[in-house]
Design a protein around this nucleic acid. Structure first.
Lengths: 343, 343
DNA sequence: TATAGCGGCTAAAACGTTTCATCTAGCCGA
DNA sequence: TCGGCTAGATGAAACGTTTTAGCCGCTATA
């Protein structure tokens, strides 16, 4: 059964085509009796609006896209949930595209989205350099908001979380607890987040002066296994040189460290304190609940979506903004034990 | 700058409008020289196809939707990745919608998707009962494939994984290892998966005869915390009645059990063996790597997508199918130790 | 030499909306 | 009685494609 169109509805209700459209879009412009007749016709015919035609007329669609690096990554899933909320409240629709860290796929997605004349694009781009694809979108008048990447570009909005501050928070906490020998575990340093978190930690240490030292162990990846290996390394040190606290670039590494240390008979936090990063769901559920730096992920998504909608509404008066959120340290058992200052 | 349309391209290239369309859609129908002229015009004008117009003409879009219960759930993210792969290979686009287990949102999504005349819908419906929304879609000629839900409806395809078999596999394994006192932990039983996995385990036990016994402990949720509580309960039993193996309805529970047992000084698997379900990423990374029943999640997505595309291609000749996949037991350390039969 | 066939192209119709300029009928005030 | 006004409804144009019927000029065939 071919779907009924607006013309059939009009005929069925004995009105003109324009009237049906008015019922749909500006219901109070049409007399109640007529309106009811039209609505009846709509239900009896099972009429459903044709969005293509609507979009064609309008010149743009009512969907917003978000292009993420990995749909399965909890960071992005939370961002998506936040964005979704805002977009849906605005009566629009959010479509999620997955670039899978593949710039060819990213480009393909952007092309399709452009063909669809989407209202705007939230994106964490695969590449860090110049982004001709995104510039093209913007030239076409499609607003783009960068998520967690390269704040500061002049022709688009962005949202991000301050990783340097995150590093600071973790380090300040460990220093407050009285630790003097501290390690930073994470890598590769080519990942901006890893480098920033380290920079923050180092800066905090610097500022506090004192005699505390920060040992850096670069891992090859941000996985549980890498964390275990790093912990093994630490254990080769003589006890008196061994760090009494480790700050990990993410929670997976931290969990690996936790596992390896307890397996080798060390107590957390009594012998070694641990602070992770990301506050993933498992941080709280670990054998020893893990202290971690939490990023306001869904707020990231919400804000990005709001900025996008705002730009889409008022392109001319819009001024691009770059919002940086502050992370927050969640202290749990893994680092919650002040260290007797013995020296 | 308003986007150029096909007519401008035609004028610019000195050909008719239809020729441009042919260059776009059936390039080899047009003489090489002309084709090149058109292509040049396209690039110099920065022409981008307008998908709305295309869809309007075609009567349907080239996008397929997947509606999941939770974008952040690893099960669904893997299904999405599988589906994505197939859909993209077919030159279409997959949009991910999140119902968040809220049937109102689900309905809203389906309405929008219907307005968009999507090519088809993959969905794990929120409600188990009759599904008038889906029936409506199908009446309209939009193919629907059920994912991991209510196989056997006659007017749509479905894919699922055999949870009963999964329960069997786990139980057979534990019996093979020589266990006689076994516990099943999970709940609430109102969740079909939880009930099915138990049913499978019970059936396996039944068939094997023997004197082994299965103790069932119903938990209130499928979380790490629930697993810990369940383990605590088990520990109140006198050692001689305590199960020597537990099969958990999912990995979160299993991880909770593992944590609690080791915290209380029991060894896994020597004192108690554990088998989980789902084979989440953390199963392999746990303190004691966790045996688990793995579901072919991305294959679920791939197959569902294939069935959908097939149905969309040939609606008339299409026969609905219900594919049930078999799960697979991944044995790791947590259950990898035959038990000396001492009785 | 007439004709059929064919490659290459054109012109026009159609898809289903929204919008906008008009039209009509009814009412009020002059 | 007439002109002006308004609420309500109309009809046509426009959005940008794809598709289809048909045209033109050429070559191969009878």
């Amino acid at each position: 059964m071919a779907t009924a169109n607006i013309k059939e509805v009009a005929r069925h209700a004995g009105v003109s085509l324009g009237t049906v459209s008015n019922v749909l879009n500006r219901p109070d412009m049409v007399a109640p009796a007529t309106r009811q007749r039209v609505l009846d016709a709509i239900t009896t015919l099972g009429y459903v609006r044709n969005d293509s035609a609507r979009q064609l007329r309008a010149g743009h669609s009512r969907t917003v896209a978000i292009v993420v690096l990995d749909v399965a990554n909890p960071f992005f899933t939370d961002v998506v949930r936040g964005a979704e909320q805002v977009i849906e409240e605005a009566g629009a629709m959010l479509v999620v595209c997955n670039s899978g860290e593949d710039s060819a796929r990213e480009r393909r997605h952007l092309e399709l989205l452009e063909e669809q004349r989407v209202r705007g694009v939230l994106i964490t781009p695969v590449d860090h350099g110049p982004q001709p694809n995104l510039d093209k979108l913007i030239d076409r008048g499609i607003p783009v908001v960068l998520v967690d990447r390269g704040t500061g570009r002049v022709n688009r909005c962005s949202v991000a979380v301050d990783d340097v501050l995150g590093g600071r928070l973790a380090m300040d906490h460990l220093l407050d607890q009285g630790h003097h020998r501290i390690a930073y575990l994470g890598g590769p340093l080519s990942i901006a987040q890893v480098a920033d978190r380290h920079a923050g930690a180092a800066a905090a240490l610097e500022e506090r002066g004192g005699d505390a030292e920060l040992r850096v162990a670069v891992t090859t990846s941000l996985t549980v296994a890498a964390g275990r290996r790093a912990a093994e390394e630490l254990l080769t040190l003589p006890a008196r040189q061994r760090p009494t606290a480790v700050f990990c670039a993410n929670d997976l590494i931290a969990l690996g460290v936790l596992q390896e240390l307890t397996a080798r008979g060390l107590r957390v936090p009594a012998d070694v304190a641990i602070v992770g990063y990301d506050d993933i769901e498992f941080a709280d559920a670990a054998a020893v609940p893990l202290s971690s730096v939490r990023q306001p992920r869904d707020q990231l998504g919400r804000t990005a979506a709001q900025m996008l909608l705002e730009e889409a509404e008022s392109r001319d008066t819009h001024r691009h903004r770059h919002v940086v959120f502050q992370p927050e340290l969640v202290v749990r058992r893994s680092s919650d034990q002040p260290r007797r200052t013995r020296r």
